[in-house]
């Protein structure tokens, strides 16, 4: 079975997590599922990178965690964006767009 997934470029995981959390607070599994779905199954976040990334973002104060009940009423850890996190998201989004545009431009001209 050929894997349709592509690897995440370095440094984009933070952006994706922040973007996903910008809509509503989510627990870890939902975040990875959402990225998977929204990217039309192209992106898949390994647990091995997801949780360290979440804890790193938490340490930086961009997201914060609290325990809550999941949709099937299980205890789950929900992450939400902080004010700092919103700002960081804006910064990273614009940086990404610039980068993507630049890369696209180069790819088209050559």
């Amino acid at each position: 079975m050929p894997d349709p997934r592509i690897d995440l470029p370095q440094g984009t995981l933070d952006l994706l997590i922040l973007r996903t959390l910008a809509l509503e607070p989510q627990h870890g599994w939902a975040i990875s599922e959402r990225i998977h779905q929204v990217s039309s199954q192209a992106l898949f976040v390994q647990q091995g990178s997801l949780y360290p990334a979440l804890h790193r973002l938490e340490r930086k104060g961009w997201i914060k965690a609290r325990w809550g009940a999941s949709e099937n009423n299980r205890r789950a850890k929900f992450y939400e964006l902080t004010r700092l996190g919103h700002k960081q998201l804006e910064r990273e989004e614009s940086a990404w767009r610039k980068l993507a545009a630049a890369v696209a431009q180069i790819l088209e001209t050559t």
Partner: peptide
């Protein structure tokens, strides 16, 4: 907590 969180993820999957 870490254990719980990971277990939850595993069960969801």
């Amino acid at each position: 907590e870490l254990d719980d969180e990971l277990r939850f993820h595993f069960e969801q999957q």
